[in-house]
Design a protein around this nucleic acid. Structure first.
Ligand SMILES: [Zn+2]
Ligand SMILES: [Zn+2]
Ligand SMILES: [Zn+2]
Ligand SMILES: [Zn+2]
Lengths: 150, 150
DNA sequence: TAAAAACCTTGTAGCCACTACATGGTCAAG
DNA sequence: CTTGACCATGTAGTGGCTACAAGGTTTTTA
């Protein structure tokens, strides 16, 4: 397989594949005489694994660790469990804050009806008031310096 | 106010405040004779507004647009409504996929019990199988045309 | 009074996971 | 023989910060 064919087969942009190789996530394949990368089935499977983990929103560093464990089948798998649990906790935390966030945005949405100037806009008023107020997300110490929601 | 005091008052890192100034989000304040930035109440309110919008996870480009509308109170506010709606749709979409993702991770979590090698790890097996399989997030729809393997 | 600390300034580089060029080589179809 | 689709490398940009480095200023402390 050339890189374009591998990309087709996995729905991954060839530039992304080269990027994975550059950062050491995907092993460098052999080259044809013209310099083109020549991939085999092992590469396809490894790339599919990477993309599946990415679809689970794992950071590439975690994927790297999982790949390493796959390459060392006799290692203790304690790390796998820990990694998944940590990642799940992270995702659940983000779910919580996203839900709170959606609620706030839904409240805002109703406040702008018909044609009017921005001076009369309920959304802008609400945003300004909330930013001054005390009961808002960004002033209650929960996430003071880093919004870090999505 | 010096930059550190403004940062204290708004829970924003001074480096972030300078960053906002650099990208044109916060107007450059006057300077003292020693070169220190001197902020007033207007800056504090503007920064609070920015952080509140960021806590709602709006991108800075959107915040920029809202600030512009605040500065032009006679403009039509149609854009405000559209902006909030678009953003809410974005958040809700993200919420959906995050929920699906949490479910998948919860399924994975149960598959790694007791001490065993990575070769026997249910999580790794599941991840590999899912990556090869058809029903997974990252292989949706588009049938991978099998390219010739070298 | 001097030393130490905490502040401030500018500039640059790094983070993540890509993405988009720019510039040039290779190959198959018409 | 030209066109166009590929491929190669390298560099730079994205967003929203964060982390220095190397220096100047002010405040606190010994
Ligand atoms: Zn998958
Ligand atoms: Zn309105
Ligand atoms: Zn707020
Ligand atoms: Zn296991």
């Amino acid at each position: 397989m050339r890189i374009g064919e591998l990309g087709q087969a996995t729905c991954v942009d060839p530039e992304t594949i080269r990027y994975y190789e550059r950062i050491g996530l995907l092993p460098a394949p052999v080259r044809r005489t013209n310099g083109y990368r020549a991939y085999g089935l092992a590469h396809l499977e490894r790339l599919a694994f990477i993309r599946h983990c990415r679809a689970l929103d794992m950071p590439l560093a975690d994927v790297q660790r999982l790949l390493h464990l796959l390459d060392h089948p006799l290692d203790d798998c304690l790390d796998v469990d820990r990694l998944i649990n940590t990642h799940l906790a992270h995702v659940q935390g983000r779910l919580q804050s996203l839900q709170a966030l959606a609620r706030q945005l839904e409240q805002l949405r109703g406040r702008c009806h018909g044609r009017h100037t921005t001076a009369e806009c309920g959304i802008l008023h609400e945003l300004v008031a909330a930013a001054q107020g005390e009961g808002c997300v960004c002033h209650d110490g929960s996430a003071p310096n880093s919004p870090e929601v999505i």
